[in-house]
Computed example of a mutant assay.
Amino acid sequence: MGLRLSQRLHAVLLLCCALLAAPAWPQPTVLRVVAQEGTEPKFIPAGIGRVVGLCVDLFRAIEHVDPGLQFAGDQQWLPLLRAHSELASHQNDALCAVQRTDERARQYIFLDPPLFQLRYQLIARADDPAVINNWEDVRKLGPKAVILTNRGYTTPEMLERVGGLQIDSSATSPAINLQKLVAGRGRFFLHRAPGMQGFVDRAGAGHKVKILPTVMASADVYMAMGTHVDAAVRLRVQRAIEQLERSGELARLLKKWD
Results as ranks from 00 to 15, higher is better:
111 L>R: 06
135 W>H: 05
120 Y>E: 06
164 G>M: 12
172 T>W: 14
114 P>E: 06
111 L>T: 08
163 G>E: 07
154 T>R: 01
179 Q>I: 05
132 I>L: 12
147 I>V: 15
134 N>H: 03
121 Q>Y: 00
120 Y>L: 10
172 T>H: 15
116 F>H: 15
138 V>E: 03
130 A>T: 09
108 Y>N: 09
138 V>R: 02
150 N>F: 10
173 S>P: 08
129 P>Q: 01
135 W>R: 04
119 R>K: 10
135 W>C: 02
138 V>T: 06
160 E>I: 11
141 L>G: 06
114 P>Q: 06
147 I>R: 14
120 Y>D: 09
118 L>T: 03
133 N>R: 12
120 Y>W: 10
176 I>L: 09
146 V>P: 03
149 T>N: 09
171 A>H: 13
148 L>G: 09
121 Q>R: 14
122 L>N: 04
111 L>M: 07
119 R>Q: 14
153 Y>N: 08
124 A>D: 08
178 L>H: 09
157 E>G: 12
152 G>T: 02
174 P>D: 01
118 L>K: 07
164 G>T: 10
144 K>E: 15
148 L>S: 08
154 T>V: 13
111 L>G: 04
108 Y>A: 11
111 L>F: 02
130 A>D: 08
173 S>D: 15
127 D>E: 07
125 R>Y: 07
117 Q>R: 15
155 T>W: 11
145 A>M: 04
122 L>G: 02
132 I>F: 05
114 P>N: 04
129 P>C: 01
127 D>V: 00
155 T>D: 13
112 D>M: 11
151 R>W: 13
132 I>D: 05
159 L>H: 10
154 T>M: 03
137 D>L: 00
149 T>M: 09
115 L>N: 10
128 D>R: 03
109 I>C: 13
179 Q>A: 14
170 S>V: 09
172 T>M: 15
123 I>G: 04
135 W>L: 04
125 R>V: 06
123 I>S: 06
161 R>L: 14
139 R>S: 01
149 T>Q: 05
176 I>G: 01
170 S>E: 12
173 S>E: 15
136 E>T: 14
179 Q>V: 08
178 L>E: 08
172 T>Y: 15
155 T>A: 12
138 V>W: 03
131 V>W: 08
137 D>W: 00
120 Y>T: 00
125 R>Q: 13
131 V>C: 06
131 V>I: 14
